[in-house]
Design a protein around this nucleic acid. Structure first.
Lengths: 228, 228
DNA sequence: TACTTTTCACCTAGGTGCGAAGAT
DNA sequence: ATCTTCGCACCTAGGTGAAAAGTA
């Protein structure tokens, strides 16, 4: 996932649905992003793999993205797909825009928090999410990603260009790029109902980065079912 | 004010500040727009005046614009300038986008409502704002305006073009338009602190439409001070 | 005649990866 | 050598009034 000084959206964005909430209870929904391990990585081009390259950099200031619809009733949350597309990532440890601060070349796991309103402790964009009764955290292993300041992997670059509407300008529509096979393959991405495509099918893409794309397929959207 | 089928923003937008709210109480803030009188108007070009042209058309479905930050604490509301720039006006009586429905060629008065949360009656975008304890309405005579589907008055057109960033394409920067005097005058608009300009200074502009511009001058912003 | 609707060029605002330049 | 930063062209998304066409 690209991170910049100014802040960069994740693409694709996390999208979740909730079930089992109390319809009349008010909740906050928030996201934070935690390290997967204590390592720093580098991308080894000839083997197309991320390799451990030492220990993690020192921790960054904690940040929480509070979903802008918060607070809302369980009924409201359950009625909609909850999208985190406005969330931004930065590598600027002095960021004052409320973006989530991460280290480049590290592995991270996004987490979704459902927080019952007025459950005692307070929710803040610059403090760790409280734990305890009335707070539940959810994470989806397929959404683990590696942070970079520039793409290391051509397949990832191509997926981003092909699927992010804002990158349309970089799609070189068949000019020197796609054979028929590639065309069919990319079409399968857009119409996943036509065949069940698992991301391991795509050669040369790390499982972590690749699987994150599944979030943008509505029919594979992450779901969380809880009662708190 | 222009109204269209698809919905058109007001320009300038209403902006208000609140004071005297209970910091820990939750409030909705909303706007509706009510007829000033029971008349329909037409613009008489040679006298540059709006003249009564019959009785008002039959009432339109009631609509309320609930400020998107609602609900929020008194503390939150008082900390910010509350802008209604996303509000849209339409002449489509069958509108299903939640826009405020008005008749063209009529005079209207926007009203700001401050509604204590959980004060019994419920707030809805398609029902009249409830009245009673815990609800207060404010209106500012200088924000009365006349609805049109196309501008009737060249001075208004020019004010809109000169001051709305989205109309920049129609500013013909001095080509066949502004003499030095006009330039100085328009500069005075942007730097009102330099001299106290009352809108009656501008010849040929109806007071109502003209004064609405005062809302976009921060130092003349409407204020409401209440305790409910 | 007296509006209203539709389409359009021209903007604002801001999200992309590229590639040259910068940093260590 | 290996990242990171910055300016940029190229997009999406949507807010303007002009002008031509529509309506009654």
């Amino acid at each position: 996932m690209i991170i910049t000084k100014a802040g960069r959206r994740m693409f694709p964005a996390m999208r979740v649905k909730t079930a089992g909430l109390n319809p009349h209870q008010q909740y906050y929904i928030a996201m934070d992003i935690v390290p997967v391990d204590n390592k720093r990585y580098r991308y080894v081009y000839h083997s197309s793999k991320w390799m451990v390259a030492g220990n993690a950099d020192s921790p960054v200031p904690p940040r929480v993205y509070i979903h802008p619809d918060s607070p809302a009733s369980g009924e409201t949350w359950m009625r909609q797909v909850i999208s985190f597309d406005k969330l931004k990532l930065t590598n600027n440890e002095l960021d004052d825009q409320g973006h989530i601060i991460l280290h480049s070349m590290h592995k991270y796991q996004p987490r979704v928090h459902v927080i019952r309103k007025e459950c005692g402790e307070e929710l803040s964009p610059v403090k760790a999410v409280p734990t305890g009764d009335g707070v539940k955290a959810f994470s989806f292993p397929e959404t683990v990603f590696t942070t970079v300041t520039a793409y290391q992997n051509q397949q990832i670059t191509r997926l981003k260009i092909d699927r992010n509407p804002f990158a349309k300008g970089f799609r070189d529509s068949g000019r020197n790029r796609m054979g028929l096979e590639a065309l069919v393959e990319s079409y399968a991405f857009w119409r996943p109902s036509l065949r069940t495509l698992t991301f391991e099918d795509i050669p040369g893409i790390t499982k972590q980065e690749c699987l994150l794309y599944s979030n943008s397929f509505p029919e594979r959207g992450c779901r969380i079912a809880i009662r708190i």
